[in-house]
Design a protein around this nucleic acid. Structure first.
Lengths: 144, 144
DNA sequence: CACATTAATGATAATGATTCTCATTATTAA
DNA sequence: TTAATAATGAGAATCATTATCATTAATGTG
């Protein structure tokens, strides 16, 4: 609940880059860590303002970039084009099941698919640096 | 080279919706069909202007939407967030190998992966409507 | 063919997300 | 405590996309 490990990672990152600490960044980091949802910058900003109403838009974006660089978060986009942010620490690589009805994202992994993706790339002489997969549809809950 | 089939599909679509034909739409359609690249709206607009310099931005976007509705094109987005458009007629479902060096997109399919994706969804009680997969890395050409 | 109807167009304004600028404030190391 | 400099927030700027609207063009009818 206190996210000591993540905070330590971020502190180290800030220190190593010769940056300074700030209360705003801590507020944003803790708010980000506290939800498992895949939020947009604006949605995160709204949440952060409950904790600290003075925080500006630019600071949210700037901090999100730093969280990305420090390996704590990852930006991704679904087909709607909106940038969303998800936890990276403690979340190994995974793909998403996206419910088009309720908007929920489920994280999934299938090692067999991962392997086949590598084979496919290799067959085309392609050196993989990353990959993503999304399955869109209707989730179990929404099917009733 | 004349894309009769695609033009017929679009004409039928326009007629069935009670819309009207226009030279601008034909210019945009033909320009779109003539390239196998995965263009953004702006890139397509530049190309179209070589054929008809008077065509406006809004018309390109409006036509792209109609091409989507008529099943001739599909909008998609890579991780850079830019909307791109690709041919749908004569291009069955496929995934993309995206070269981060030259930006080239290669279209690929692996039936085994497709099958496993369906199994994975089923296992989670998920009813699939569509799915996408992208592999990012360096293509064969750029590796030298 | 001429006409009335109505869709299409292009210029431009508006929007929404994100980034930039800059004067002010806060953090840090000495 | 202070000097150096990074961080902040407000608001301007940007970029892609969409909406508005007066004008133009396509269509079906007689």
């Amino acid at each position: 609940m206190a996210f000591e490990e993540e905070q330590r990672i971020f502190d180290d990152f800030v220190r190593n880059k010769g940056l300074k600490h700030s209360g705003q960044r801590r507020d944003i980091l803790l708010t980000f860590l506290k939800t498992e949802k895949h939020l947009t910058a604006d949605e995160l900003h709204r949440l952060v303002k409950k904790r600290n109403p003075a925080i500006g838009t630019a600071t949210v974006y700037r901090t999100l970039r730093l969280l990305g660089e420090s390996g704590l978060c990852r930006e991704f986009r679904l087909d709607d084009g909106a940038a969303r942010y998800e936890h990276l620490y403690g979340h190994e690589h995974h793909d998403h099941l996206v419910c088009k009805s309720c908007g929920n994202l489920e994280e999934v992994v299938d090692p067999k698919i991962e392997k086949l993706q590598e084979d496919l790339a290799k067959k085309h002489g392609f050196k993989i640096s990353s990959h993503k997969m999304e399955i869109y549809g209707i989730c179990r809950k929404c099917r009733n």
